[in-house]
Amino acid sequence: MRSILIGTVLLSIATAYYIYLALPSTISEPWKLMYVNALIRGMMKLSFVAHHLGLTSPFGLVQYYSAWADVKRIESSTTVRVTEACFGGVEARVFESAAAGQEHSLKRGLVYFHGGGWTMEPYYLQCMTMAEEYRLAPDARFPDQYNDVFQASKCILTAEVVAVSGDSAGANLAALWRNRCEKSKHQISSGPVLQALDFNTPSYQQNAHIPILYRSFVARFWLEYLNGEQKLVPALLANNHTALDQGQEITAAKAKTDWTKLLPVAFQKNYKPVVPLHGDPKLLEKLPGLLDVRAAPLLADMKVLKAVPPAYIMTCEHDVLRDDGLMYATQLEEVGVDVTVDHYEDCFHGCLSFAFGPFGFSVGRRSLGNYIRWLKENL
Rank of each mutant, 00 (worst) to 15 (best):
K254T: 13
D342M: 15
V293K: 11
G247V: 10
L277A: 08
Q63I: 13
G117S: 09
L237M: 08
D167C: 10
A22D: 15
S28Q: 06
D301R: 11
G279D: 07
H104M: 13
E75A: 15
Q63V: 10
F267W: 12
S168R: 03
A208N: 01
Y146R: 12
N207L: 05
F359H: 01
N370H: 11
K306H: 09
V274P: 03
G88Q: 10
G54A: 04
A295Q: 13
Q246L: 15
T242D: 07
A300W: 11
P264G: 02
G7I: 14
C316W: 02
G166E: 06
L11V: 14
F113W: 12
P281G: 09
D167N: 13
G289P: 04
G42N: 13
Q206P: 00
T56Q: 04
S97F: 01
L232W: 09
I40P: 04
G54S: 00
S76R: 09
V49G: 04
Q195L: 09
Q187N: 09
A99N: 11
E133G: 03
H186P: 04
M1F: 06
V164K: 00
K256E: 06
F217M: 12
G360V: 06
W374I: 12
N378A: 07
M43N: 08
M130Y: 14
A219Q: 03
K282T: 09
A92Y: 02
N240S: 14
D301C: 05
P264R: 06
N200Q: 07
M128Q: 11
L23V: 02
S3A: 12
D324W: 13
Q151C: 02
T315D: 03
L321R: 03
W118Y: 14
G54I: 00
G289R: 00
F142M: 06
R178F: 05
Q248T: 13
M130G: 04
R135Q: 14
N370G: 15
T119A: 08
F113T: 00
E132I: 15
I210Y: 05
T129M: 13
C347Y: 04
I156D: 01
F267A: 01
S12C: 15
A159N: 04
H186E: 05
M314E: 14
R294N: 15
Y112R: 03
D245I: 08
R373Y: 07
F87Y: 13
A175Y: 09
G350K: 13
S3W: 07
S362Y: 02
K231S: 15
L375V: 10
N207G: 06
L375Q: 11
V293N: 13
F87A: 04
V90R: 08
A311P: 01
V341P: 11
S203V: 06
R178C: 15
C351P: 01
V275E: 07
A98L: 04
Y214H: 15
N207Q: 09
S97Q: 01
Y204A: 00
E160V: 05
Q268M: 13
L10I: 14
C181K: 03
A252L: 14
P122Q: 10
K286C: 03
G109I: 02
P122K: 13
C316P: 02
T257P: 02
M120A: 14
W68G: 01
M314Q: 15
F359V: 05
T251V: 11
Y112S: 03
E75S: 11
N37E: 08
K32C: 01
W259P: 02
V339I: 07
L21P: 04
Y35H: 10
P288L: 03
H186C: 08
K154E: 11
F113I: 02
Y328R: 05
C347A: 15
